[in-house]
């Protein structure tokens, strides 16, 4: 979709629809994604820049589950 609509800059989060800033209660990941996206405003050198986030959905979910356990939200 992103390649078709050709935005000048984009960050590609390889996550489930509806979860482009990560997983619930993973504040650190949510912040990283925001900062990475805004960083492209300063660092993208050419239009069409698409940056792939170096994290998988499985990894994000694993980290999110661990955080939920630490918060007592999941057994």
């Amino acid at each position: 979709m992103t390649e078709h609509s050709k935005p000048p800059r984009a960050v590609l989060a390889p996550f489930m629809m509806g979860h482009h800033f990560g997983v619930p209660f993973h504040n650190g990941l949510q912040r990283r994604i925001i900062l990475k996206a805004l960083g492209r405003l300063e660092r993208a050198e050419r239009s069409g820049d698409i940056y792939d986030l170096p994290i998988t959905w499985a990894q994000a979910r694993r980290e999110g589950i661990a955080i939920e356990r630490s918060l007592g939200l999941r057994h």
Partner: peptide, 23 residues
């Protein structure tokens, strides 16, 4: 038209209003 399973627990996964405010 999209799964809200995460957003229903933490809206910030799709609309990171609290993270933006913190930053």
């Amino acid at each position: 038209k999209y799964p809200t399973v995460g957003a229903n627990r933490d809206l910030n996964v799709i609309f990171p209003i609290e993270r933006l405010r913190e930053l």
